[in-house]
Amino acid sequence: MQVRAIGIVKEFGAAAAALAGVDLDVRSGELMALLGPSGSGKTTLLRVIAGLEAPDRGRILFGDEDATTIPVRKRGVGFVFQHYALFRHMSVFENIAFGLKVRGRERPSRDEIRSRVTRLLALVQLEEYGQRRPSQLSGGQRQRIALARALAVEPRVLLLDEPFGALDARVRRDLRRSLREIHDATGQTTIFVTHDQDEALELADRVTILNGGRIEQTGTPDEVHDTPSSAFVMSFVGESTSLPVRILDGTVRFRDRVLGVPGEGGRDGPAALYLRPWDVAFTDSDTALAGTVAMVRRAAGGRRAEVKLDGPGQEVVEVGIPVGRSVARGETVRLEIRGGRIFAGRP
């Protein structure tokens, strides 16, 4: 089911962050991540799609149907809450069956409910746990049950709010994989909210980055990481440091030194040069930028050196340390800038 949000505006409510005109297009069968810092409106957008919040302006479309005024209970969404919101006085089985049992006239038969719940328990690999109470399960198991419960009603779209937020690193990794597998098996259109860029980049088909109630960029993980459309996306997705530069006649200058980075038709004047750790390299050239290593640390993909540049600004850039090269704190190094992206304004 294709899900579209058109011009969604939501003023500040009691608890929710505002949305200032958001357009979102989630393709049928897609796994979409809404990524942003806290207060960016990502959860508000998810709740508006679910119908748990009413937008002040704008429309929500499910396929060609206008879903804006369809009440939550008829909208056909599966929602997985951040703290799971499992019904604590019901068994796992009853939790999953709840959405089927409350259907009134279209309620499936007893046997059908039983076989469907059993199938879902198998899908989330918790066949043996049907008679347990939620309080007897680990966080990761509760998360799976919440997912199974949401899928039980055969929703048109599956919505997950910070699905792995409260879990430890190992469980998160396993759950990410199984969410991906379940998604691939069911082909369910899925939107999930996260503040964790690794989660979004690893799991999603496409990522939408929100900031201050607006969408900064929507694209595949590669697109948002490699060709960010704004300084915010550049600094929010992936590692980066920035330098204040000046553009003059299509060249990028840092303290009157011309860098080997194309100005990309930027307007003359002050700008910000954003650097990924591998945009900067150590060099032996005497004329290159000089600096002192302030800190060496281990990041997810390898080691990084924070280098404080000599000179008046004392700017800090982060350099990826190639395998086999040793760098010590306090060492004087020379740096060559090989790439990076220019954005208007100061960093």
């Binding site: 939550v72 919101a85 709840f98 959405g99």
Partner: peptide, 27 residues
């Protein structure tokens, strides 16, 4: 309110949410 919201997204009518979710939670 997330338990009630969960029941709502699962399609339960209001009185049913009250009797099956809210009251048992505070019994």
């Amino acid at each position: 309110t997330s338990d009630e919201e969960a029941a709502l997204t699962l399609g339960a009518p209001g009185w049913r949410i009250f009797l099956r979710v809210t009251v048992p939670n505070v019994k």
